[in-house]
């Protein structure tokens, strides 16, 4: 029986190559015990998964009795998001003028954050990768730091950045740069670790030094990955730069927050529409660019 668990069956792993085989009878017996144990393990994990699912659904205590009134109320407000039956072009033009700057700021935050984050991540990924360029304890430490920092949500960094730099999009860009740096640092390190070893051996066998190993064997393998992950995080950062705006870091998010506070539902609708268009546009462009070099 094949079991795709964490460890291969002990019978396959432990026996040294040149040792005589154990007697077939005991071997069979051992294998049977093995499969019984594995079956028990599989059952146990299935039951455990089920129990966790029950716990999660039960714990939330879904209560749908408010749903009917909630839908009615929400839909009456949602209607306000859409500019229906109106011809106030002067208002629309004024709105466009007020939203143009935040729209640009959102894009600028995402772009600056992505570029700065990627530039910072590049050297750090070296320290974090277990490739032999840095001693193992250092890479373990850097990786742990990255993992810890990654667990903190972007909003927290945005709040910190706002209090450090002040309200506005520079704070948002800093927060996004930091978050990008952390996630790309980890992803870049993983990219370096998953490089095919063959070309590295070939460069070493030809007498190349470790710098040449990196330039000729590793970089060509990781560069496409580096660029496509960077573009992917740009897509992500457009959404993030909207969210950090809500805590005062400028951009469309900040405008949306203001519009909601002032009950300007139509403004809010327009802002959300802008975001949808922007996110999809960036996704599409980035997808096309990524496809071109993968």
């Amino acid at each position: 029986m094949k079991f795709y668990g964490a460890t291969p069956p002990a019978s396959k792993m432990m026996r040294p190559d040149n040792m005589p085989r154990t007697e077939p009878v005991t071997g069979n017996m051992q294998e049977r015990m093995q499969s019984v144990r594995q079956n028990a393990g599989a059952w146990f994990s299935t039951v455990l998964t089920g129990a966790i699912a029950v716990w999660a659904f039960h714990g939330l205590q879904f209560n749908f009795s408010h749903l009917s009134t909630g839908i009615a109320r929400q839909s009456s407000q949602l209607v306000h998001l859409f500019p229906l039956n109106r011809g106030d072009w002067f208002y629309d033009l004024a709105l466009m003028r007020t939203l143009w700057d935040p729209l640009q700021a959102t894009m600028q935050m995402a772009i600056v954050g992505t570029v700065v984050g990627a530039l910072l991540a590049f050297p750090v990924s070296f320290a974090a990768a277990r490739t032999g360029y840095f001693p193992r304890p250092i890479s373990n430490l850097v990786k742990t730091l990255l993992n810890v920092a990654r667990a903190v949500p972007t909003l927290v960094y945005a709040l910190v950045a706002v209090s450090l730099v002040g309200l506005g999009s520079p704070a948002g860009a800093s927060a996004i740069a930091f978050v990008t740096f952390i996630s790309l640092g980890k992803l870049y390190a993983e990219g370096l670790e998953s490089v095919a070893p063959g070309p590295i051996e070939a460069v070493r066998a030809a007498g190349g030094n470790s710098v040449q190993v990196f330039i000729f064997a590793m970089l060509p393998q990781v560069l496409p990955l580096y660029l496509s992950t960077m573009l992917y995080s740009l897509e992500y950062n457009i959404k993030d730069s909207f969210i950090v705006g809500i805590v005062g870091a400028g951009g469309l998010g900040f405008s949306l927050q203001n519009a909601i506070n002032l009950y300007k539902w139509q403004d809010a609708g327009v802002i959300i529409f802008f975001l949808v268009v922007l996110v999809n546009l960036v996704d599409y462009i980035s997808y096309r660019v990524r496809k071109s070099f993968s």
């Binding site: 063959g198 070309p199 190349g208 040449q212 064997a217 393998q221």
Partner: peptide, 24 residues
């Protein structure tokens, strides 16, 4: 040295791969 898996750098040109022999 010649390998079973060729060990070329797939994302580089043929010329660059041969020039790896000159790196040292």
């Amino acid at each position: 040295m010649i390998f079973q898996e060729f060990n070329l750098v797939d994302r580089s040109s043929v010329l660059t791969n041969v020039l790896i022999g000159r790196l040292a």
